[in-house]
């Protein structure tokens, strides 16, 4: 359970819930002007996103409110980048995301991408209906230590197992960690292991913490070679 929100966080949270997106973005960018992106992120945006994540998991906020939260974070990130501001811990490294073969539920994947970028990851998003070889090829090409595969339903979640098989076949398991996500994993957590996932997060907002853990695991198994 997160700490109670400060007054200004409650204001921002309220703006997001009623879809006053322009006002929410303006409030955050004014704060960036005053104190910089890193301070704004840790003091305002991050706690509000955490609150939204908790309420999303508890089904107390709607799909539309989650979508607005993602768009607010995305707009602030882009506007801040245009001003030369970098997210905290920028340069965490490349990751590759997709909805797995036959899955077309893009929202969760897009939100994960937004929140990972806000946390300093260099995200390549391959989109919907991506097969395992394409995902692993892109991870190898970009040097990603983590790939994320999303599926909404059981019938498509099982397709993620082909990513594990592809990683095994190329001897990349461990080095490249497999993050899995989507509604069905929250409702049937045992599926994470069944499809060969290395980990999952209960919501898009918790994805950055998961990716931090998976990177640490990858580096512990296969340390970076000195340049």
């Amino acid at each position: 359970m997160s700490e109670p929100l400060s007054g200004e966080c409650r204001d921002l949270y309220g703006l997001i819930l009623v879809a006053k997106r322009d006002q929410a973005v303006a409030m955050l960018l004014e704060d960036v002007e005053r104190s910089g992106f890193t301070d704004m992120f840790s003091r305002l945006l991050e706690p509000v996103l955490n609150e939204i994540g908790e309420n999303w998991m508890a089904e107390r906020i709607s799909l539309a409110q989650g979508y607005v939260a993602g768009k607010v974070a995305e707009e602030v990130l882009l506007a801040s980048a245009a001003r030369g501001e970098k997210p905290p811990a920028a340069g965490k490294g490349p990751v590759v995301l997709c909805c797995i073969e036959d899955d077309y539920h893009a929202l969760g994947r897009k939100l994960v991408g937004i929140f990972l970028r806000a946390s300093g990851w260099d995200v390549t998003d391959l989109g919907n209906d991506v097969c395992a070889p394409e995902l692993v090829d892109k991870a190898v090409a970009t040097g990603a230590r983590i790939v994320g595969a999303s599926a909404m339903m059981l019938s498509t979640a099982v397709n993620i197992h082909s990513v594990r098989e592809e990683l095994d076949r190329r001897g990349l398991s461990g080095r490249i960690q497999l993050a899995v996500g989507g509604a069905v994993f929250r409702l049937r957590p045992e599926l994470v292991e069944e499809v060969g996932g290395d980990g999952t997060a209960p919501s898009a907002l918790q994805a950055p913490a998961l990716f931090d853990r998976l990177l640490a695991r990858s580096l512990s198994l296969f340390p970076e070679e000195p340049a």
Binding site: A19, R21, S62, L63, A64, Y67, K71, A106, L107, K110
Partner: peptide, 18 residues
Amino acid sequence: KELGFTTQETAQEFMREM
């Protein structure tokens, strides 16, 4: 009610994006 798209602007942007 179910998806929470109570404003036309958000609904339209979401559908165009998805």
